[in-house]
Design a protein around this nucleic acid. Structure first.
Lengths: 208, 208
DNA sequence: TTGTTTTTAGCACGAACGTGCTTCAACACC
DNA sequence: GGTGTTGAAGCACGTTCGTGCTAAAAACAA
């Protein structure tokens, strides 16, 4: 009936603009006017697709979560397909954990945006639900990974949960340092830390 | 000659107000008006002690860095005083690492403020110098701790640096999770993860 | 008391923000 | 060709922000 516009594509373009602004200028600069400028639209146009600023931010948060979770689950499938203890599996695990880190431009933007939203969710209640979903999705993948790497002690659930949280914390800390102190936490340092952590996982079997 | 006011004490009160606002409402709400309200002063009074908003924020960042670094170095002294491999040393190490985490009200405020400023420093160049100082100070303490816990391989500097960065990343990740997902990352879980990490440090001696 | 200087308080300006509301152009259908 | 729905654009209002500036208040020296 009216002007033909792919609404979903438009929303995606707007969200991409939000991502670019957050990555370069931070979340607090992602105002309707800035986003509209970056997307080369008018403020009214952006508001046609997103009723309010909050709705735009929540939708953008959900979008980055879906992107990250999608990458993680694809990488997890590769790990599960690989032969246990094989070099292929080790490579697949490194690839999975690398998805957390800002190793290329696209990953860096996602990591920036992800971090920004998670921290903002501490303050803004509208973001809390998505933050919880994010944590659940990532924890599920990491938990599954720990189970794969420690098939022997599938009974010692206590230790598995602890190890999953430990790996998750290490990954988030690595990501943080790579974003905030890129001169110190280089890609090579990330790789060294990752291999050291994986070695420590194999070296500490049961705990008691 | 004029009204007697302890300028240093006033500045400290203002900074405390900044801390409270950041912890409860986030850094972006730490405006001059909000800070003045929280400190029960007029905007003009705050501006008398801090020429600009940037100056207030940079000073506050420095203050929280000094607080955290002071605690860490005091705790490090306890570790260095303890007998190597003794239970006292283990306790001192746990105490040191606990200084990173929001385990009580004061630590939680400092952790919030610290995180907020470090992330803001990625965007705001005025904060960059203090962020670098913060990283240097904390990395020095953690590096020293790793050397104490691994006296044998004092020559394998590569491994020591990697282990220091790994511990630092894990601590920052734990702190992040404790702040952002307090229901999942409880104090008990923090403790479990810490002891697991310390065990993994002892279990993986040299690398090659 | 008078004068000096620090401290406190407040006004005013321009900029940026979210949002309610109106207006215009474009297109599909009757 | 007319008509109505929808995308796009923009105005206006109230709020908040940092900051330059002025002026009252307070406390000590003379």
């Amino acid at each position: 009936m009216p002007k033909i516009v792919d609404a979903e594509a438009r929303r995606h373009e707007v969200v991409q603009a939000v991502f670019r602004i957050i990555a370069s200028d931070g979340l607090e600069r992602a105002s309707l006017r800035e986003v509209a400028d970056e997307a080369e639209l008018a403020v009214g146009s952006v508001r046609h697709y997103f009723a309010s600023s909050d709705e735009l931010l929540v939708f953008s948060f959900g979008a980055v979560i879906d992107r990250i979770a999608g990458r993680l689950e694809a990488a997890l499938a590769s790990v599960e397909d690989a032969e246990p203890e094989s070099p292929e599996q080790h490579h697949a695990v490194l690839n999975l954990l690398g998805q957390f880190l800002p190793l290329d431009e696209e990953l860096a933007v996602d990591a920036c945006v992800w971090m920004a939203f998670r921290h903002a969710a501490r303050i803004k209640p509208v973001l809390a639900a998505e933050a919880e979903r994010s944590h659940r999705a990532v924890a599920a993948v990491v938990g599954r990974l720990i189970m794969i790497l420690n098939p022997a002690e599938a009974d010692a659930q206590q230790s598995l949960v602890t190890e999953a949280e430990r790996l998750l914390a290490t990954m988030d800390g690595l990501c943080m340092h790579a974003l905030l102190q890129p001169e110190w936490m280089t890609a090579e340092m990330c790789s060294d830390v990752l291999t050291a952590h994986l070695r420590s996982l194999r070296a500490v079997p049961a705990s008691g």
